Amino acid sequence: TTLTVNTQTYTFTSEEEAREFARRYGAKTIRKTNGTWEVHG
């Protein structure tokens, strides 16, 4: 199964959650914005 996250942004309140998600789905960018963490595919 392949998950494609081209134009979607996922927002997390903790860096740990964001990094775990990025690691699991191979997202390329993690960015902190206004106190939340954004993961970009």
Score class of each variant (00 low, 15 high):
26 G>V: 02
28 K>C: 15
6 N>I: 13
39 V>N: 01
29 T>E: 10
1 T>Q: 12
16 E>L: 08
34 N>V: 02
21 F>Q: 01
16 E>M: 08
39 V>T: 02
31 R>N: 06
27 A>L: 15
36 T>H: 12
33 T>Y: 07
20 E>M: 06
16 E>I: 09
21 F>A: 03
33 T>M: 10
9 T>A: 07
23 R>P: 00
37 W>G: 00
23 R>Y: 05
13 T>A: 11
31 R>Y: 10
3 L>S: 14
8 Q>D: 08
25 Y>W: 10
32 K>W: 11
6 N>W: 10
21 F>G: 00
37 W>K: 00
17 E>Y: 02
39 V>Q: 00
20 E>F: 04
14 S>N: 11
29 T>R: 05
10 Y>R: 06
12 F>Q: 00
33 T>D: 13
16 E>R: 09
5 V>N: 12
2 T>W: 07
19 R>C: 15
23 R>W: 05
40 H>R: 12
39 V>F: 01
38 E>R: 02
19 R>N: 09
30 I>T: 06
24 R>F: 05
30 I>S: 03
5 V>C: 15
36 T>M: 14
5 V>F: 08
25 Y>V: 14
40 H>G: 08
37 W>V: 01
34 N>A: 06
6 N>G: 10
39 V>K: 01
17 E>I: 03
18 A>Y: 01
27 A>S: 07
19 R>V: 10
17 E>H: 04
30 I>K: 03
4 T>R: 08
23 R>T: 06
38 E>M: 06
8 Q>C: 15
10 Y>P: 03
16 E>W: 11
12 F>E: 00
3 L>F: 06
8 Q>W: 15
18 A>E: 01
36 T>P: 01
2 T>H: 14
3 L>K: 09
21 F>H: 04
1 T>N: 13
37 W>S: 00
38 E>K: 03
17 E>G: 02
2 T>V: 09
26 G>K: 06
32 K>L: 13
18 A>M: 02
27 A>G: 15
20 E>K: 07
8 Q>V: 14
8 Q>I: 12
9 T>E: 04
27 A>N: 05
1 T>A: 12
36 T>N: 08
6 N>T: 12
26 G>A: 05
35 G>A: 03
35 G>N: 07
40 H>N: 08
2 T>L: 10
25 Y>T: 14
14 S>Y: 03
25 Y>Q: 05
36 T>S: 08
11 T>D: 02
6 N>K: 07
34 N>G: 07
28 K>H: 14
38 E>Y: 07
16 E>S: 09
6 N>F: 10
2 T>R: 10
14 S>L: 04
3 L>M: 12
30 I>N: 02
28 K>I: 14
2 T>N: 13
36 T>W: 07
12 F>C: 09
7 T>L: 11
25 Y>S: 08
35 G>H: 04
21 F>T: 01
21 F>E: 00
